[in-house]
Design a protein around this nucleic acid. Structure first.
Lengths: 235, 235
DNA sequence: CCTGCAATTATGTCTATACATTAATGGCAA
DNA sequence: TTGCCATTAATGTATAGACATAATTGCAGG
């Protein structure tokens, strides 16, 4: 009820962006229009827009207007590594090899799968990332088809599902678990290393708003990869 | 020259905080005082302070004033894990066992050590973290005595240097490298596992402003620990 | 001594207005 | 057509003032 007006304006626009109602690149109403809509002064809508700009959700350009920001592949906060980009960025040849791809219902015994699937099915993908022909990581991924219906039509012969998702479905929230494990038979086979070799295990869930998008588990050859994250005070 | 005034005010206060001139908890000048100092309107200093508050550097309370924020042990952005707190938080008994502690000059052959040391010496610490008597992680740490002179007097028989640093020397920037490695002889000995066991290797550098504070390398027993990071859109 | 009310003070929100800055746009001239 | 320039529409910065809100502080009364 009594939330400050600029907060309310901010939240309404934010909701429209997160829900996808306002697509990336879309122009949002100019300040004068918002002034009229909310019956307030320009400073007030300006404050809401500035705050959205500070959070990186919108981009403002003089004379042109305010626009929904295009999702940055590299988040300010953490590099969610796009392996394809990283490998090619190092001048190596990238390849993704699809091993399995099925659509199935969530396993009712696994609460995380049920939560991710929502009211739809899951797309389960397995494959291996190669750099210069050498296996770099093995990947098992679940994607909610309720959240990303376009994905069903997508062919992952060569493009990695991670890269596709980053481009097409911006996330707003992510949780990453990192551990070291010895490679089991399956992973060792994918990566071409001895059983028990130290591997970096990364499990990541991403959400858009509060809708789950994907859950991915990756095993990296320990010696060939490391993960770097840099943090600074928020601006 | 032509930076907006509210930006200039913001930067000057920020600098005073990062340099340590304004200690955590210190009260900063009230808005009217800043108005006079900069000869501007209240909205202008307010904007600068609001921006600092949004970045988490200051905390504002009505009637009371604005204060330099106490460093949050858990950064909004990443849990830089304080092992002691995490272990006791799980109801286990924490212990840190110091293995070595020397003050030495930086190795001139290692650029990172020289950069970290600045014009002073380095304190090198080695030890093992235990949870319920079981080794959890082995740690090798370098601390810049130029940045943290108080540390020379500190006794690390029982408290972990990481916990001490978190409390006493807030960082503003951090870089973390994570990889999986097989345990070498030294680490395996510390952790009481077989040579070659998969370990999570974490290397972290932290800075305050642009002065290096510490460089730490930790090896975790792969099976016993994992690292979780959660990210959301910045507020 | 404690309790509760009231005065005070600092920040929070908002308005209305002015001028600055930037860049998209459209028209004019080469 | 092409290139340039003036126009103009948008945001950026700033002022001055009003009223709202919260919390500290001190005072009065039990």
């Amino acid at each position: 009820m009594s939330a400050p007006l600029h907060e309310r304006i901010r939240r309404e626009i934010e909701a429209a962006i997160l829900s996808g109602e306002l697509q990336p690149g879309a122009r949002l109403p100019v300040e004068h229009e918002l002034m009229e809509r909310y019956g307030c002064a320009r400073m007030t809508v300006s404050k809401a827009l500035q705050s959205l700009a500070a959070a990186g959700l919108v981009e403002r350009r003089k004379r042109a207007g305010s626009f929904v920001a295009r999702p940055r592949v590299h988040s300010m906060v953490l590099d969610i590594p796009d392996l394809e980009q990283e490998v090619t960025g190092r001048g190596q040849v990238y390849r993704f090899e699809l091993a399995r791809r099925i659509v199935r219902a969530p396993d009712p015994a696994r609460a995380d799968e049920v939560a991710l699937a929502g009211r739809g099915d899951l797309l389960a993908i397995e494959g291996v990332h190669f750099a210069d022909g050498v296996p770099l990581a093995s990947e098992q991924r679940l994607v909610s088809l309720a959240a990303v219906p376009e994905l069903a039509a997508q062919d992952f012969g060569r493009v990695s599902p991670g890269a596709w998702l980053l481009k097409h479905v911006p996330w707003t929230e992510a949780e990453t678990r990192i551990a070291a494990v010895g490679a089991d038979r399956l992973v060792a086979g994918h990566l071409g290393v001895a059983d028990g070799t130290a591997c970096l295990f990364v499990e990541r869930r991403t959400w858009r708003g509060d809708e789950g998008i994907t859950l991915v588990r990756q095993h990296f050859v320990g010696a060939a990869y490391d993960l770097v994250a840099r943090f600074g005070a928020a601006r």
